[in-house]
């Protein structure tokens, strides 16, 4: 089992959701997050005042998948989240040691 985690631009969430659904992903977790990557934030001008944005708002998407589907899901996520602009985000995969579904007590891949 793998956990696919993506940090993407907020407005890409709908596209990502649609793409993941097409790949048979049934559930995902979304968190509002802020941070910065290589661009180190940016400067914005609003109502005449210039201000430095240290942290850029992003959404974090987490999906639990089986080992064999993890690469396809990562690729789908990358494809859906890409704008080609700076700050498009990152996607990574981590191993999951064990998993349980709280309601039924199912364990392992059955709980995905």
């Amino acid at each position: 089992m793998k956990l696919v985690t993506g940090i993407v631009k907020p407005f890409k969430l709908d596209d990502v959701k649609t793409a993941l659904e097409l790949h048979g992903v049934e559930g995902l977790t979304v968190t509002e997050v802020q941070g910065y990557g290589r661009q180190r934030g940016h400067t914005e001008v609003y109502r005449g005042a210039e201000y430095q944005v240290d942290f850029v708002p992003k959404v974090k998407i987490e999906v639990l998948v089986s080992d064999e589907r993890s690469t396809a899901v990562l690729e789908a996520l990358v494809e859906a989240a890409r704008t080609g602009q700076i700050g498009d985000g990152k996607v990574w995969i981590t191993d999951i040691e064990d998993l349980a579904r709280v309601r039924t007590g199912e364990r392992g891949p059955d709980a995905i």
Binding site: P10, E32, V33, Q34, E44, V45, Y46, R47, V53, P57
Partner: peptide, 18 residues
């Protein structure tokens, strides 16, 4: 109206305002 949401919407507004 989290700071996160305020930021996302404010970002859009500042782009349009400009």
């Amino acid at each position: 109206w989290s700071p996160w949401r305020a930021h996302v919407i404010g970002d859009l507004v500042s782009h349009v305002a400009a």
